[in-house]
Amino acid sequence: MAVRPKTLNQAKATYSSNSELAWWVFMRISGLALIFLVLGHVFFNNIQVNVADVDYAYVAERFSKSWVKIYDSFLLGFAMLHGANGLRYSIEDYIKKPGRRFWTKTILFTVVGIIFILGVMTLWAYSFEEMGEAIRALPEG
């Protein structure tokens, strides 16, 4: 059965990657992980403290802790990848024209990439302590 492909179409027909298998496994693991990550998030921000008491100072104080940064990085990464891949599944199914499918996926991945980078920057490259002091230094009103 091992016929060497001679044209691009033949090569495409014989090409096989495990990417869909890997995504399927990822969806199961990330889905399970997200249940507990989100429950933990709800516990820390809605049960341990009163939502009405959550202000900038509380958030800045939380985000200055390394374990919160790591925890929220996992939450961000799993949620974005799990959601984006789910949307990709729907796009593969519902958009029938190959060109339109390609561009819709390109836009999706771009938007997801931007949100992900913004999230990582907020978590790791933003000094909540300094911003907190700057806001407190502003004149009243």
């Binding site: 096989s16 990657s17 495990n18 869909e20 995504w23 399927w24 593969e92 199914d93």
Partner: peptide, 17 residues
Amino acid sequence: DERLQVLNQPNGLWRCR
């Protein structure tokens, strides 16, 4: 192995939800 190769294509097995 040949069958699983066919089913491992993006529109093979993995579209099942």
